[in-house]
């Protein structure tokens, strides 16, 4: 249940980008969450909604873009998305793979009605 502290950090970062004119309304906060980041999107959205209260982000919607785990094969160079998080190359079945996507936990952008 660390989504609460993750939601707090997202709000802290997003708040730094909201213009201080009190006229702007933040519509969306967009984040990327990798499959291996151990974050449950529904739970993150719930925590975000609960925490924004009367802050500058009041009324904003959190949009979570889920990033599948993707590996690059060290042996044949093939790039493939993996399901069930079994680390092997889909083409040559080698287990020597580098994780190139799937650990993301990033605030990407905010959309403002100004």
């Amino acid at each position: 249940m660390h989504e609460l502290s993750i939601a707090e950090e997202i709000i802290n970062i997003a708040n730094q980008y909201v213009p201080s004119d009190n006229k702007s309304e933040v519509l969306f906060v967009i984040v990327e969450v990798g499959k291996l980041s151990n974050i449950l999107p529904d739970s993150l959205e719930f925590c975000f909604d609960a925490l924004i209260g009367d802050t500058q982000l009041k009324g904003a919607k959190l949009i979570v873009k889920e990033i599948p785990a993707t590996v690059e094969c060290v042996d044949c160079g093939n790039i493939s998305e993996i399901e069930n998080v079994i680390f092997h190359c889909k083409k040559c079945e080698s287990s020597k793979v580098k994780l190139i996507k799937g650990n993301e936990l990033k605030v990407i952008e905010i959309e403002i009605n100004d």
Binding site: I10, Y17, L105, I108, E109, E111, N113, D114
Partner: peptide, 14 residues
């Protein structure tokens, strides 16, 4: 309506 790019890691402080 405008979009502001942020591109920052959530756990950057940690």
């Amino acid at each position: 309506m405008s979009r502001l790019t942020i591109e920052r890691k959530v756990l950057e402080k940690n």
